[in-house]
Structure formats: C-alpha cells, structure tokens
Design a protein around this nucleic acid. Structure first.
Lengths: 166, 166
DNA sequence: GACGAACGTTAGCCACACCAACGTTCCTGT
DNA sequence: ACAGGAACGTTGGTGTGGCTAACGTTCGTC
C-alpha cells in the first residue's frame, strides 16, 4: 500500500513511460507506423499503394518476371499480387502475357507508361522519406538505414534451407 | 522493345531489388514485423500480449491511473483498453475500482501479482530485444535506439492543438 | 439547472498479412 | 510412356490490429 488507493496521485497529464520509450521493438512499431502513414497518404493521393511501387521497382530493376518471382522479389503474397497486377494492368503500367516458354506463368513487362508512373511514385516516396528522416542529420540517416539493413539481412524472411554461404 | 518479349531473361532466383532494400520506410516495416513476431511469440507462449506488458509498465512506473490515462500513456485505444484490463483483472494483475473522487473513472491499481507478472514479461521482452538486435554491436544497438527515439519524439502521436513550445 | 466534455463500454469497420484449395502445366523417375 | 509431385495463377476465406461510432453516465461550467 505504497499509494493511497482510491485517489489518482500524479497529475502529470500524459507521458509515455520511460521504460517503454526505450524498447526497440516498440519504437520500431511506432516509427514504422508513422512511415507507413507518410508514404501511404502520398501514394493514396495519386490512387496508388506501396505495393504498386514495389512491383514497378522490381520490374524496372530486374526486368520482366513471372508473378511468383515478383512475389518473391517484393515480399507480396502471390494471392495479393493478382489484384496489384490487375490494377497496374488496368492503368496500363504493365503488360501481362502468357509465357510461351512455360505456359503456367505470365510474363509481366513494364510498359513505358509504367516507367513514367514509377518515376512519379519514386518522387513521392522520396519526399516521404525526407519528411520521415527530417529530424536526423544526413549521417544519422545513413546510420539508420545501415542498421536497419543489417537487421533485415540477418532476420531473413525465412531460412527454409540455408540458402547462401552457410 | 529493348528486351525480348516472351522470355524471362535472368535466372537470378530471387533477390530484393537494391532500390527497395534502401528505402527506410520499407526497412522499418520489415524489421518492425520481425520484432513484433519475436515479441509476440514469446508473450503468446505465456498467454500474454504486448498490450498487457505496456499497461503493466505504465502502472508500475507512474502509479495508479484511470483507463483513459492509461490509454494515453500506452497508445492503446480506450476501446481496446477495456478488453486488456478485463484480462489483466481476471489474472489478478490489477484491481479496477471506481474512483471515489470522480465516479466516471476507474482507478486501476497494480497488484503484487501484477508486479510479479510484469517482472516475468519484462524478461521475455528483454530476451526478444536481445535476439532482435543480436547482429548489432552494443554501440550500434544504442545508436539505433537513439535514432528511433529521435524520430518517435519528432513525429508526435498527433498534435491536435499545439501542445508544446508554440 | 442546462450544456458540453470526458469517462467506460459495446459494437463494428477496414486494411493487411496470411492460408487453403483448385485447375493447369511442368518436370522427374521409373 | 506415363504417374506423381511440384510450381504457377487465381479465388475465396481467416485472423488480427488500428481505428471509429454511438450510448449512457458523470463531471465541470456558465
């Protein structure tokens, strides 16, 4: 009975407890949510979603691919990929043709409209990152990205069979 | 028609495009998901959730409080707080008494069982953080926490009415 | 004494990650 | 040659988490 039961002691309006403000997983969740909102809002203003951007980048960088491969490259589930590609296709950003070499697959190809779209979305994303990282110095921004990169590499999606040098 | 349409060129099995691996918001989302799974799994093994931990910490650190205030301290919505407190109450971790000074409120008090529970959960959370940050040096771990702290502070929950120096 | 605001509570919505199943097509072993 | 298993694209469904809406109660204030 260290505190008087029945009366709320402190009047400190509201402040996140110090012990919570120091837990990395919690900080990560919070900042990730902010980042997601920042990115999501800008993309939504153009009728886009982050998935669209991810797919467009994957196509632009590694060239045409099957849906399954895009799935693996972007981390988007095959199931969800269908809808994303439908929308991108409707917008004329990609073409989806049956693969003559493997009739199970579709070959997804980036169109020039898609490349233009990508450029636009890239700007928005970059802006969002800038706003997100605004309170950090350029060195800190790089530090953060590096650290997150290390963690991302270490905690692989899954390691269903050691894939690389191990 | 720079690429042969109808054939998938590279055979590179799957690799996240470099441009995606460098976008902070994306890295954050990924690492936050890993962290959440790490923490969530351990807590689930004891029938707990991260919310329980947050509430217990808030109570332990700042003393008894109303549900609304706990809401503000932890970031958990008032609506969801109800269920969390029900569970904590069922487990005997807290007491929920009407506040004699304000009959709208309940005074939430941490019991000794709750304090014991908190200690246990704290161990689990700490373990999870350790596993999460394993690939980083102690200095890097501190750096990361600091950087995330800065971002958390800057991007306030909301600022619905200029709260601070403005 | 009336009105607006805060409280606790219930119910529900929506976005997102994930899983299950199916028909098609391919690859492999025998 | 052919049977079995695996990968592909697709549809539909599940579960969880953040958030909103509304309501009755109680407080503070004018």
């Amino acid at each position: 009975m260290s505190s008087t039961p029945g009366a709320i002691p402190a009047r400190t309006p509201e402040a996140t407890p110090a012990r919570l403000r120091v837990i990395p997983s919690r900080l990560l969740a919070g900042v990730a949510a902010v980042a997601d909102r920042l990115v999501g809002d800008r993309l939504a203003a153009e009728g886009a979603h982050k998935w669209h951007f991810a797919v467009l980048v994957a196509l632009d960088e590694a060239g045409a691919a099957s849906q399954a491969e895009l799935s693996r490259r972007t981390g988007i589930y095959r199931s969800d990929m269908v809808a994303v590609l439908n929308q991108l296709s409707d917008a004329g950003c990609i073409r989806r043709d049956p693969d003559p070499a493997d009739r199970r697959r579709n070959v997804i190809t980036l169109t020039s409209a898609g490349r233009r779209r990508l450029e636009r979305l890239d700007t928005l994303i970059t802006d969002a990152q800038r706003e997100l990282l605004a309170p950090l110095t350029p060195e800190q921004q790089e530090q953060l990205t590096d650290l997150l990169g290390i963690l991302t590499d270490h905690h692989r999606p899954q390691h269903p069979g050691r894939a690389d040098g191990e």
